[in-house]
Design a protein around this nucleic acid. Structure first.
Length: 574
DNA sequence: AACTGTCGCAACCGCACTGGA
DNA sequence: TTCCAGTGCGGTTGCGACAGT
């Protein structure tokens, strides 16, 4: 037995008996005491402290139940010992040994614990036990509301990066956060609630898209890294991969990398009140999501995180404004390599079936963006729009065709292709006269009497407008909304709206009366606005509802059109 | 009171990364 | 350059607690 530090052992002994025994799965008595050791020196025994016999007895029982693995079987086990390594719940005695070891030798070299202390635990287990339960700086107990909010924020930004999230939450462990999150989303899903608050839903959605486009190219990632946060220089290499004529048209379904919002220089730039850069800088923001992002690798730089943190939950939807380059590319990208574009189609098969569990898995399992989850209350407008059924197809089958030809057939896959096709159609129209007979989406009446707001409130005029605007110019899709967002300006940032279309813009007149959509219909749309700022403000106030409305519109249109017959439920399931 | 299903947490597992030999 | 031990991370599992019937 290693030398013991009497004070620690005394404290451990007392603490471990104060509540539930440490060996109890889920018990926190010992752990809580350990965690509070740094702040409390009280060693006064609790009324149940004389219950040591029970503890020991139970520990024996537990010990007898746990597996005893051979060192060879134990991951990270100390192969030099013949003592079978124990698995299962830790006992107080083991905790004491481990704490004592760490106090003596410090953290690290966990595989040496067994050698030095005789503890029949593998190094990994020791490390885990220490990190998750025995560390003195741990904060135990239920998460505070502030912490819960922080977790939501962090998850919106990071995805399942529990360790990184834990760094942001002092005293909390990654395992704790992970468990909390899994529990939380299960609860919310059961309750039919969105995983994220409405004001963060778009952020999540954007983040998802960014992550997905992040798989674009490792070269992009390298470029992005080189660029740094606020660097707007555009390496020529970025463009040699692109077909010029594909840069001018709206993004397609969910093909906008959220990283462009959350991790890109453009957004930082915007956040700093600068004018939006070239649309093409959009590409520069994408970083390749490594299989594992560790340590300093962060989707968000500190400044970005701070920015987001300061904006989230403040209903400051201006954050959601995309860089103007948002609309700057389409699926018709070409690559120097033969990488299938399907890999970057958000919601695509490749992504959805990917095993990159380390990445934010927005589309899978329990991490549905609320945007896709908030379907149950959506209205049922009687609007005819292109069906979203095709989305299902896209999700469930590798859109290999996209990667090959880049040509789009309006008949092959439904909405996304319809959007793409529309884009191409618009392209042709622009080439001809810049006039707007390009819209393939069915025009939508502004009034949607059946629709209710997020909380059942009647829709605002601008909500109707915003939805109708989408409907007028593109089939409704998530990307449409993003596109719309991209075409708004961040209040106070004096961002010139860079219109997808070729309508001339006065560079100086960038803060008012801007054309939101460049087609002639835009003028009609703008007639609904007293001012652009009003639009933005009201739009973002209602953005959450708009998602629902768009969803409803799309759903309705799918039924009306009879073209393609997948459902948004399928989308939600993604 | 007994049984059953669900929940939540601790621990484990497998994989990937890192750094030194 | 390769190998390997150590370490870290995220997903999964096991199991006790608890609520409902």
């Amino acid at each position: 037995m290693v030398k013991r530090e009497p004070s620690i052992l005394t404290w451990l002994r007392v603490s471990s008996l104060g509540e539930r025994p440490a060996f109890h799965s889920g018990g926190r008595g010992f752990i809580s005491s350990v965690a509070s050791a740094s702040t409390s020196t009280s060693t006064s025994p609790s009324p149940v402290h004389d219950d040591m016999s029970i503890t020991s007895e139970t520990e024996e029982r537990m010990t007898s139940k746990v597996d005893m693995d051979s060192p060879d079987e134990a991951s990270g086990g100390d192969l030099g010992e013949s003592v079978p390594l124990k698995k299962g719940p830790w006992t107080s005695a083991e905790d004491v040994i481990l704490v004592d070891y760490v106090m003596t030798h410090g953290e690290g070299n966990w595989n040496a614990v067994q050698r030095h202390s005789g503890l029949a635990r593998c190094g990994k287990s020791c490390r885990l036990r220490w990190a998750n339960h025995l560390r003195p700086d741990l904060k135990k107990g239920a998460f505070t509301p502030e912490e819960e909010q922080r977790i939501v924020e962090l998850h919106a930004k990071m995805g399942n990066k529990w360790a990184r999230m834990a760094v942001e939450l002092p005293g909390r462990t990654d395992n704790e956060i992970k468990n909390y999150w899994n529990t939380r989303i299960k609860r919310r899903q059961r309750a039919g609630l969105p995983i994220y608050p409405p004001d963060i839903s778009f952020l999540v959605s954007q983040n998802k898209q960014n992550e997905e486009l992040g798989a674009f190219s490792s070269a992009d990632a390298q470029n992005s890294d080189v660029l740094g946060i606020n660097n707007f220089e555009i390496p020529a290499v970025e463009f040699k991969k692109l077909e010029l004529n594909h840069l001018l048209y709206p993004p397609q379904l969910a093909d906008i990398p959220a990283r462009s919002l959350l991790n890109d220089p453009v957004n930082n730039f915007l956040a700093q009140g600068h004018r939006a850069p070239y649309s093409s800088t959009y590409f520069l923001s994408t970083t390749y999501p490594s299989k594992r992002m560790r340590g300093s690798e962060s989707v968000f730089s500190g400044s970005n995180s701070d920015l987001l943190n300061s904006l989230q939950y403040q209903n400051d939807s201006s954050l959601l404004a995309q860089p103007l380059g948002f609309s700057s590319y389409s699926h018709n990208l070409t690559y120097d390599d033969n990488r299938s574009f399907s890999s970057v189609v958000p919601g695509g098969h490749a992504y959805l079936n990917g095993n990159s569990s380390s990445e934010p898995t927005w589309a899978m399992k329990l991490e549905l963006p609320s945007l896709q989850n908030q379907t149950e209350n959506w209205g049922s407008p009687h609007l005819a729009l292109p069906s979203l059924d095709s989305v299902d197809i896209l999700i469930q089958s590798p859109p290999a065709g996209h990667s090959e030809s880049g040509s789009l057939s309006p008949s092959n896959s439904g909405l996304l292709d319809a959007v793409l096709h529309e884009s191409q159609t618009m392209n042709a129209s622009h080439d001809n006269s810049h006039q707007g007979n390009e819209t393939s989406g069915v025009a939508v009446n502004n009034s949607c009497p059946d629709l209710k707001g997020w909380d059942g409130h009647p829709i605002s005029p601008l909500s109707q407008f915003s939805a109708s605007v989408f409907s007028e110019y593109t089939p409704i899709s998530e990307s449409s909304l993003h596109e719309f967002l991209s075409m708004t300006t961040m209040p106070g940032c004096k961002i010139k709206q860079e219109i997808v279309d070729l309508a001339p813009l006065d560079e100086e007149d960038d803060t008012s009366n801007q054309t939101i959509f460049s087609s002639p219909k835009t003028q009609h749309a703008n007639n609904h606005l007293a001012s652009k700022d009003a639009l933005i403000s009201c739009f973002f106030d209602d953005c959450a509802w708009d998602c629902k409305q768009l969803h409803a519109v799309a759903t309705s249109s799918g039924q009306a059109s009879g073209h393609n017959s997948c459902s948004w439920d399928a989308m939600s399931a993604v």
